Simulated scan of single mutants.
Amino acid sequence: MISLLCITIISLTMAGSGYCQMATPSSPKLVKTELGGNVTLPCKLESEDSFFFGSLKVTWTKVAEDESQNEDVLVSIGLHKRTYGNFENRAFLVNLEGGDTSLVLTEVSMEDMGRYRCEVIDGMEDIIQDVILEVENGLTEGVVFPYSPHRGRYNLNFDDAVQTCASQDAVIASFDQLLEAWKDGLDWCNAGWLSDGTVQYPITKPRQPCGGANSNPGIRKYGSKNKQTSRFDVFCYASKLKGHFYWLVQPDRLSYDEAVQACRDDNAEIAKVGHIYAAWKLEAYDRCDAGWLADGSVRYPISRPRKNCSPTEAAVRFVAFPDKKVKSYGVYCFKADQ
């Protein structure tokens, strides 16, 4: 385990004598973040002029109750940096050359919660800063949903998957978000990309086409795949709406182009798939009318199962990607907060 070294300074006025100066941890700072997001843990030298960049040593450690079990996160010595264990490729320093040794963690999980220690040695100003990280379950403010494009299932490489979620006012979901959605009852037999580059799918009701009827419920894992050549669906994560999702009352059924224009005429936009899932899951939106959405699909949200309207489960029901010229559907609109 790597710890801060004791600095011995030889006094110029008292030749041959010396003393050892050890920095002590300052009062811990509290940082809160949501599950699956990115977070910055603050740690910065007081003066940018007090250090020589090539000699700077920075150590970030996750502190355990028994400090003999501390976990190394990141060590940086001059131009050389190394991350460890579960933090590999997820931990970065903000601006080392500018004296900002704050730690950025990406794709935060519940396991990341805890106390972190920043130790900095530059030969003149040595500091120890503790930061306590609290992680809040982002699913209280969002919803995970599976998505495949109009051209059919298993047509997205990883980059396509990221962009597809963004186009639906969502982000690609993390494993922790998918896990929490599975605990909440999400069951989906098509494999989809997650933000860490793995391909997985959640099963609450084991059955033959989905890993076998005698298998246990859980997250089925395909593991890491080639991000450019492998093609799957994607799991997206939509946050709480910052606006109003609604069914636009119209006297006639509309084509897709007419639906887009109708929302514009109402000073709104045609709703996206992320909007309908967020309204359904987080606002209990319920309507048994099939309506156009921005991606050209037709769907409707049911939070109260009943005959002829998703009789067995609450769900966003998918109808089809119909010919955009047909006039068989209404439209769902979204009006953003001003």
Rank of each mutant, 00 (worst) to 15 (best):
V273W: 14
C333N: 06
Y285T: 08
K272V: 04
D323A: 11
W280Y: 08
P322G: 07
C309A: 13
C333D: 14
F318A: 12
Y300G: 04
C333A: 12
S303D: 08
E283F: 13
L282S: 10
R317M: 12
E313M: 11
E283H: 13
E269Q: 15
C333G: 09
E283A: 13
A278S: 09
A314C: 11
R299Y: 00
G274T: 01
G291K: 04
P311Y: 08
K272H: 09
A315I: 09
K324H: 02
F321S: 01
R304S: 13
E283M: 14
V326D: 05
G291T: 05
S297C: 04
A336R: 10
R299D: 02
A262R: 03
A279F: 07
A271Q: 09
Y285C: 10
E283Y: 11
P322V: 10
F321I: 05
L282V: 08
P322N: 02
R317G: 06
C333M: 08
N267Y: 15
K335S: 14
V326Y: 05
L293H: 06
D266R: 08
P305R: 05
S328M: 05
V316G: 11
A336F: 10
V319R: 01
K272N: 07
Y285P: 02
K307A: 11
D289Y: 14
S310Q: 11
V316W: 04
Y332G: 00
Y332N: 01
R306A: 10
A320R: 10
E269P: 02
G296V: 03
G330I: 08
A278C: 10
N308W: 09
K325A: 12
A278P: 05
D295E: 12
C333R: 02
R306D: 08
